[in-house]
Amino acid sequence: MMRWLCRLASTRLTLFGMVFLAIGAGLSYDNPADISVWVLAGPLLLLALNLFAAILTQPGINRRPGLLMFHIGLLSICAMAAIGRLTFYEARVEVSQNSAFDVAAVDEISQGVFHQGELSQVRFVQQGYTVEYRPGLVRGITRSYLQVSDGRGGWLSQVVGDDTPLIIDGYRFYTTFNKGFAAILTWTPGQGEAITGILHMPSYPLFDYKQANSWTPPGSSEEIKFWLRLDTGMDREADWLLDVRNTDALLVVNNGEQRLELQPGQTANLPGGQLRYEALSSWMGYKIFYDPTLKWLFIAAMLTVLGLCLHYWDKFKHQSMTMIKDKQK
């Protein structure tokens, strides 16, 4: 057993592992879809085993506290990264203004096989948002205003955006460039209950030129096309603040037979029912990220560097300076 461990702790194996890891890193550039995760996981596993065996068998490592801390730290980073990949969760979601986050609306989900978080427990309500733009439509600071459940029946105000995510139960919600306007519509069919919903338009100002969407009323086969004619005050040559409160929007409705223009609060009679344009609203797109190892990964990385510093301190302290000063040799 010891003989095998000693072989596994070989310093040559470390070098091979490092070379393979470098190749794996090069192949992983830009996360190509056709490259297996094993180009990284394989060398990392090899290096982790090599490191583990070295810690157990090499007195040069396990009898030097700093070096031992450094190597255990490296091993911990590998372990944390692996656990992180098994338990992570990533997704995207659009949340409408004055609406609560709805786990059913989450899209583009990617998660580790052992992910056990409870995203459905997350409670927050999206309010408005503002985005500063500089000349040339260069995006500046994003502020998204939220009401977050305090867990005791109350709500707390919170502003998130750019590098300040909303963090609830380990889930991190990041604002994205993907945000836009929406129309709140009420459909009253000829018979039955009225329904109110929010129709999201494409991302703004990215798709400024096509703020359009369509909807088919329940029980009908006729698709209704909508177009928001926005007046946001956008000025490409000057500073500008994107804010739904400063925006007017006319809703153009087209059901194939007629074209109508509605102001907020106006109603249109369409085949099969009445459509009321209640108000202009907005939506914010969030990236959701969850990785329970983040804090531990950071601690492990810092301990690794601390171990390295301790080792160098000890090494430099004990080294004779005479070798540095032997200029006359």
Partner: peptide, 30 residues
């Protein structure tokens, strides 16, 4: 992680800087 919602993504700088770190480690090791 704060800015883009991920701590590592193998973009050009991250890939190159990881290789640099690895080469320093390998160099000292050798």
């Amino acid at each position: 992680q704060d800015a883009w919602g991920r701590y590592w993504s193998w973009d050009a700088l991250e890939t190159s800087s990881f290789m640099t770190w690895l080469s320093i480690g390998a160099g000292i090791h050798v």
